[in-house]
């Protein structure tokens, strides 16, 4: 008899169900088995109607985010061995996103937010490629390095109660990406991106719960990015106020 583990999987089939429900499976245990392996085992051997996203199985493509026992996790980087003490492992679709089906979340809101913050290098004057690389020392790179590690998996959005309350909040991933460019010594677009940080849907929806940074599988620390953004937005607010008092236009 091989040892098995009970995996309870959330199901939601939009064509049949009005609300999600839970289905139990017994999966043969092994030391190396990830939650993703377990889901694939279920799909291949037990119930082919289970739908979940996955691809790289090495925690870099960002496809396979799910809630494992109520915590946002990459299923490929989470192992059954870490849940052996518990009676069962429960796998659900990511919190705070609409559920397309089973474990597949609708992350389009998050992607829209990413696109909003102008996440590309902005230069006042574009240098021709023939002029060579823009210089950047390792120290300068270090200033934005962590914020450039985001794999867009959406775990931070599932962890963020403010995004859960109001999906218009640009959220941890998008704001960290804005800061990734703002802090890049080659970029000159911080002033343009300021409008997104300044908004109520920008950094000011954040109450520094900090759970986004705890669940981030790539140590991006989006909470730090947002709260440094608050300082920047704060200064921007004061400068703008001074300009208005001096009779200049609202920037």
């Amino acid at each position: 008899m091989t040892e098995t583990v009970t995996v309870r999987v959330q199901r939601y089939r939009p064509e049949e169900d009005t609300a999600p429900w839970e289905q139990s499976f017994e999966v043969p245990y092994s030391e190396d088995l990830s939650i993703l392996d377990a889901l694939n085992q279920i799909k291949d051997q037990q119930d082919p109607t289970l739908s979940h996203r996955w691809s790289c199985r090495m925690a870099i493509c960002g496809s396979c985010g799910v809630m494992v026992n109520n915590e946002p996790k990459l299923s490929c980087k989470t192992f059954l061995r870490d849940y052996r003490e518990q009676a069962a492992v429960t796998v659900r679709a990511l919190d705070n996103f609409p559920i397309e089906r089973d474990l597949v979340s609708d992350i389009s809101g998050f992607i829209d937010h990413l696109e909003t913050v102008q996440p590309w290098l902005i230069r006042s004057e574009e240098q021709p490629v023939s002029a060579g690389a823009y210089p950047q020392t390792p120290e300068q790179m270090q200033r934005y390095a962590a914020f450039s590690q985001c794999i867009n998996c959406g775990l931070c959005y599932a962890a963020c109660p403010q995004f859960g309350r109001d999906p218009a909040f640009l959220g941890p991933g998008a704001l960290a990406l804005a800061q990734r460019y703002n802090l890049d010594s080659r970029d000159e677009g911080a002033a343009q991106r300021m409008q997104w940080l300044n908004a109520g849907e920008g950094v000011w929806s954040c109450t520094f719960v900090g759970y986004c940074s705890e669940v981030c599988p790539k140590d991006v620390d989006p909470a730090a990015a947002i709260n440094r953004g608050k300082v920047a937005s704060d200064i921007n607010y004061a400068v703008n106020l001074l300009n208005i008092l001096r009779g200049k236009d609202d920037a």
Binding site: E15, N96, G164, R165
Partner: peptide, 10 residues
Amino acid sequence: MHKPYIQRQR
């Protein structure tokens, strides 16, 4: 048919 289930925060 597109009928996502909307999760509302409790």
